Simulated assay, not measured.
Amino acid sequence: MISGDGTSRNGATDLTEESADAVFREACEAVSLDPAGAELLRLGSNAVYRLASSPVIVRIARDPEVLEEMRRTVGVAHWLESENFPATRVVPGVEQPAFIGGRVVTYWRSAQDEIAYGRLDELADLLKRLHRLEEPKALGLPHFDPFAEVRDSLGRLDGVREEDRTFLEERARQLDKEYHRLEFVLPFGMIHGDANIGNLLRGCDGQAVLIDLDGFALAPREWDLVLTALYYDRFGWHTSAEYESFVRHYGFDLVNWPGYPVLADVRELMMMLWLGQQVATSGKSAEEFARRVDTIRADGSRRDWQPF
């Protein structure tokens, strides 16, 4: 049975293109930006708009309860700028995050007019540099607990079949046990949290910069390597040459680590649960979610999974 009316557990209307557009226009008005001609780049965990009138990105969080998290994200951005680390920058002179139209809004400098991604060797170089930094205690970075996120995501599933929900809950319980038996080999410390080629943009000056700083946390560094390994090993989204360049520049091959299959399974589950939260409002997401659940059930190839 399919349930769900597009309303989240806290009563907020789900973030659709229409509702995001209304918040976006109000957010632009609040800081005297012109919304005319803006482009909606992405509608996922955030609605991301690029203005035509100025080099600004406006991000509207899907979850209206992340104000404190976004304060930390803005703090991370300021700290990385003070370290001269190549990362996305907040728009100066704007008090943020802002709470507008029941949503949390942040304003960022646009890296470029057209999206161009960096290379995997550049991603490896930036992660290696990031992992050598010592985080300032003032940031208050949390310890990353993947299964806290998994439990929260399971509670937010809306519009999925009950048999799929039950299957994912059981898989989460099993992976929780396996994850806590892992023996990590890389140092524990600060991570980006969602390190992948999609979060590495090339700026107008040609330099690759990390974006999407929301997931900064303290955790085993393997977490910052698993998406690249997964995209190469299971999904086929990276070539062997690209992945080898990543390994060579970072200095560690996660795929050869004995704990990789479990870590990959956990990350895969988190990706599915994120997608499952959009089933009720997106036919494309619903189709992809069903494909992924069926694949995991049959332990089949992930090569036909589509990027989101």
Rank of each mutant, 00 (worst) to 15 (best):
residue 268 E to F: 09
residue 280 A to Q: 11
residue 258 P to R: 03
residue 261 P to R: 13
residue 250 Y to F: 12
residue 260 Y to G: 01
residue 253 D to N: 13
residue 238 H to G: 08
residue 236 G to T: 12
residue 242 E to K: 01
residue 259 G to L: 11
residue 229 A to V: 07
residue 243 Y to R: 05
residue 244 E to C: 03
residue 262 V to E: 00
residue 243 Y to H: 11
residue 283 G to C: 04
residue 247 V to F: 14
residue 280 A to K: 14
residue 260 Y to V: 03
residue 256 N to S: 15
residue 271 M to N: 11
residue 277 Q to V: 12
residue 229 A to H: 08
residue 248 R to K: 14
residue 277 Q to D: 10
residue 249 H to K: 15
residue 270 M to K: 15
residue 240 S to H: 11
residue 231 Y to W: 13
residue 242 E to W: 01
residue 242 E to L: 02
residue 272 M to K: 02
residue 229 A to M: 06
residue 231 Y to F: 15
residue 231 Y to A: 12
residue 267 R to K: 12
residue 283 G to H: 10
residue 226 V to P: 01
residue 267 R to V: 14
residue 246 F to T: 06
residue 251 G to E: 04
residue 270 M to N: 12
residue 274 W to T: 05
residue 269 L to P: 01
residue 260 Y to F: 12
residue 283 G to N: 04
residue 250 Y to N: 07
residue 245 S to F: 04
residue 258 P to N: 07
residue 260 Y to D: 02
residue 262 V to S: 03
residue 249 H to Q: 15
residue 237 W to I: 03
residue 264 A to I: 05
residue 247 V to H: 13
residue 282 S to G: 01
residue 226 V to N: 05
residue 273 L to R: 02
residue 281 T to R: 14
residue 230 L to F: 15
residue 255 V to Y: 01
residue 233 D to A: 14
residue 266 V to K: 08
residue 232 Y to M: 00
residue 243 Y to G: 07
residue 269 L to Q: 07
residue 275 L to M: 14
residue 271 M to C: 08
residue 247 V to I: 14
residue 236 G to I: 14
residue 243 Y to D: 03
residue 279 V to C: 10
residue 241 A to M: 05
residue 234 R to T: 07
residue 245 S to E: 14
residue 231 Y to T: 11
residue 278 Q to W: 14
residue 267 R to N: 15
residue 241 A to H: 07
residue 232 Y to R: 00
residue 281 T to C: 08
residue 274 W to D: 11
residue 234 R to P: 02
residue 270 M to S: 12
residue 262 V to K: 00
residue 265 D to F: 07
residue 245 S to P: 04
residue 278 Q to C: 05
residue 228 T to K: 06
residue 276 G to A: 10
residue 234 R to E: 15
residue 280 A to G: 00
residue 250 Y to C: 06
residue 259 G to F: 08
residue 245 S to I: 03
residue 233 D to V: 04
residue 240 S to E: 15
residue 261 P to H: 09
residue 228 T to V: 15
residue 246 F to A: 11
residue 240 S to D: 12
residue 243 Y to L: 03
residue 261 P to M: 10
residue 234 R to S: 12
residue 247 V to L: 12
residue 256 N to M: 08
residue 257 W to G: 06
residue 281 T to Q: 13
residue 272 M to G: 05
residue 247 V to E: 13
residue 250 Y to M: 04
residue 242 E to Q: 09
residue 265 D to N: 15
residue 254 L to C: 06
residue 279 V to E: 10
residue 251 G to I: 02
residue 262 V to H: 07
residue 243 Y to M: 05
residue 245 S to R: 15
residue 276 G to D: 08
residue 257 W to T: 02
residue 282 S to T: 07
residue 267 R to P: 00
residue 270 M to G: 12
residue 278 Q to A: 10
residue 282 S to P: 00
